[in-house]
Every structure is written in C-alpha cells, then in structure tokens.
Write a protein that binds this DNA or RNA. Structure first.
Lengths: 228, 228
DNA sequence: GTCTATACGTCGATAGAC
DNA sequence: GTCTATCGACGTATAGAC
C-alpha cells in the first residue's frame, strides 16, 4: 500500500510550518528582512535549515507568507477600529447616526489612529511592511496590503456619504489616496535612521489631514476653474 | 610612459555610458524593468554585453542610475509647475499674491496636475518609477524620489502659510502625506492590468483632494477632542 | 519533480589608443 | 611597445513549462 500521511503527521507538518513562519516573523519584527536569514529562521524555529525548504520553495516565498500574515493582522486591527470608532457597539453607532452625529469622521479618525499607533509601537515591523526595500516577490504583496487598507477606509467613507455626513465623492479614490498619505507620512518616522518622533503630534497631524481630505469645503473660483 | 586616457577617450567612454543609460531607459519606458535585460540594453546601445559591465558593476547599478535620471526628470517638471502655477512669471505670482490671490493653491494644483498628467501620459515609465516591484537596490532610490517630490510641495505650502493663504501646519508633513496620496492614487490607474482611465476625472479628484488636505476647516467638537 | 529556456555576469582574445 | 576598452561566446544560476 502506498504511503499516505495520517492526520497526526499532517498536524505535525502544519505545526512545523507555523513555527517557521512565526520564527521568521519574529526576526523581521526585530531587525527587518536582513535578519530573516534562512539559517537564523531555522535555528529559531528549532529545525534544520533544509527543513525550511521542505515547506517553502524559496526564501522569497517564506517572506511573502510572513508579509501576508503580518499585514493581515494589521489590517484587521484597523478594520476593527473603523467598525465602531470609539463606540462600544454597532448599536451605539446607529444611535449616534440617528442623532445626526458625525460618526463616519469619528470612525476614520479611529482607524487612522490605530494604524499609526500600532506602526509606531512596532516600528521595525511596520517599516518592513510599509517601506523597507525587499525582494520584488514580497514587494508585490505590498500592493495588495495597501488595497486591503483602502477597502476598509472606502467602506467607512461610503457609509459617511450614505448618511449625508460626508460630501459626494468616490470612496475608493479618497480611500486609496488616504492610505498612500498615511503610509508615506509614517515612512520617515519609521525609518531606522530616524530618531525621536513625537507620536502624539504625528497622530494629531494624521487625523487632521485625513479628516480634511474627506470633507468638503469652499473652493475659491480660481481653484474651481482648474479642478472643473 | 604609463598609459593615461586622453580627453578624447574619456569623452568616448562617457558617450558610451550615456548611450547605455538611454537605451535602458527607453526599454524601461517601453516595457518596465522586465524588458531592460542586459543583452537587450547592449543591443539597443550598439555595444557588446560585456561592455555594459565595464561601465556598471551590475545590472542593479545600471537600473539605479536609470531610475535616478528618469525620476529627477519628473521631479523637475513638477517643480517647474509648482514654481509659477499657471502664471507666466514670478512677477505675476507676486502681483496676484499682493492682490490677496490664492496663488499657493493654484501652484499646488498645477504641480499635482503636472505630476498626474505626465504619469498618465508615460504610463509604463511612471509605473516603473512609482510602484513596479523591482530589485531592492533600485527600490531604495524610490524613497529618495518621493522625498524630492515632497520637498517641492513643502516649499509651496510654506509659501502659502507665510502669505497667510494656508493655515498653520507642518509643511513637510503635509507635503509628504500629499505625495503619498498622489502616488497611491496613481498606482491603480497606472497598473498594466488596469484599462480605461478617465484622466480628466482622476486629475480633478486629485486636485480636490490635494486642496482639501492643505486647507483648514471647521472640525466638529467630537473630532477635535480626538485630534487634540 | 524534471527539464529546458533564459538571462546574468565572466573571461580570454582582439583591436586600437597612448 | 604597453596598456586598456571592447567584444561576444560561455558558464552558471534560476525560473517557468510540462
């Protein structure tokens, strides 16, 4: 009879794979992609170097998975923040909305703040996710990562438009631009060469920028002409 | 007597080098980094493959130089647009400013429009500069490239603050965020997989976004509390 | 998993500048 | 006569097809 892995061996295999991913993630979070050398990853995961290649066809594939895991974790946190803002529940959101409250803006601010504070707390990992030069294969994931963020903001903006709180606009456009803005604004402070960021001031600037850019205002005739 | 290259040979050498860079640039502009194969570059430049390596230690170094040349070209165009907006001269800028005109906003709009239209006209090259996954060595140049753009916007914003046209803000911060926003908003439309962009609509959205994000407005108490 | 095609980078030979 | 820039075929690594 041919060899067939039992559930038990399958489970072990999966566990090993996860240990490898976690080890690589920890190393990236500690010192960026540079420290995620295959030998170092294997050592930290308690496996032989060759074992890594029994689970991933190449180092780039491993790093791609690490990127995916880390980034989806970040996106989820921001999504959670965007869901309710500082409200405790959907119920409270609805209540405030009914009262004509500005909950979409509150939710945007909460999402931005979560994005930024998490990044500045885990600076090295955030740098790896947002800006660190890396193998093109991993780089491609970055484009997805940004899109995922943008989707979160787009939903919130669309809600705000539907409730009349935000002016008519293309939610996907504004959300994409916003994610680009936040990401780029964080790149400098996150850079390993940068030191001494005033986190609160940065968060404040980011929130102000984000709310400005989603909300209408009078444009001078001069400007209107150009934008028309 | 020892051999020493004369001016003539120096000049020839420089010319060859430039031909190689231009050939590589043309190929990147045509089909991205993928088409900039060393053999193809050499063929287009009319030299042998080995000659490329007499001028550049590696393909990555060649591409880095190509990136620098192309990106500085783009930045200069935007800088030019930001200098005067649609005014014909510095004199006119001063005149409008004296009359209380909104020239900083006009200049920002002109810079954004130039940025976007140039990108959408030379889509393949813009994609290569802004987003195409590429060797980390080249990727590192991208960070510089964005900074250069940000500097242009920062100067214009600072002018606007000085003249009282724009509200107090950190010009470097706003400019950085703005560049991130514009870049990210262009990534989608520039992507090779994307088709059929309404260029005028996109430019309009970008200008609106940019002017919103540089200009103050009332924030609700709710939001103020969070941003404070 | 193997096999092939492709593309990077090298190296000895050559022609020509000094 | 010496030295060097250029050539272009080849080795080797890798990626993609089957």
């Amino acid at each position: 009879m041919a060899y067939r892995p039992t559930e038990r061996t399958e489970a072990r295999r999966t566990q090993t794979r996860e240990r490898i991913v976690r080890a690589a993630l920890a190393l990236v979070a500690q010192g960026g992609y540079r420290e995620a050398q295959v030998a170092a990853v294997a050592a930290r995961a308690g496996v032989a170097t060759g074992t890594v290649y029994r689970h991933f066809p190449s180092k780039a594939d491993l790093l791609t998975e690490v990127f995916r895991v880390a980034s989806s974790h970040e996106v989820e946190a921001v999504e959670q923040a965007a869901r309710f803002g500082s409200a405790a529940s959907q119920h409270e959101v609805d209540a405030v909305a009914q009262a004509g409250g500005d909950f979409a803006r509150e939710r945007i601010a909460a999402a931005v703040e979560t994005f930024a504070r998490r990044a500045l707390q885990g600076r090295r990992l955030a740098w790896a996710l947002l800006a660190e030069p890396v193998d093109p294969a991993v780089e491609a994931e970055r484009l997805q990562f940004r899109r995922a963020y943008a989707d979160v903001f787009a939903r919130t903006i669309a809600d705000g438009i539907a409730s009349g709180e935000l002016p008519e606009q293309d939610p996907a456009f504004t959300a994409t631009a916003l994610v680009g803005a936040i990401g780029e604004a964080l790149v400098g402070p996150l850079s390993p060469t940068h030191a001494g960021t005033d986190v609160d001031a940065l968060v404040r600037n980011l929130i102000i920028f984000s709310l400005r850019s989603t909300t209408d205002q009078e444009l001078s005739p001069h400007v209107h002409r150009r934008a028309a």
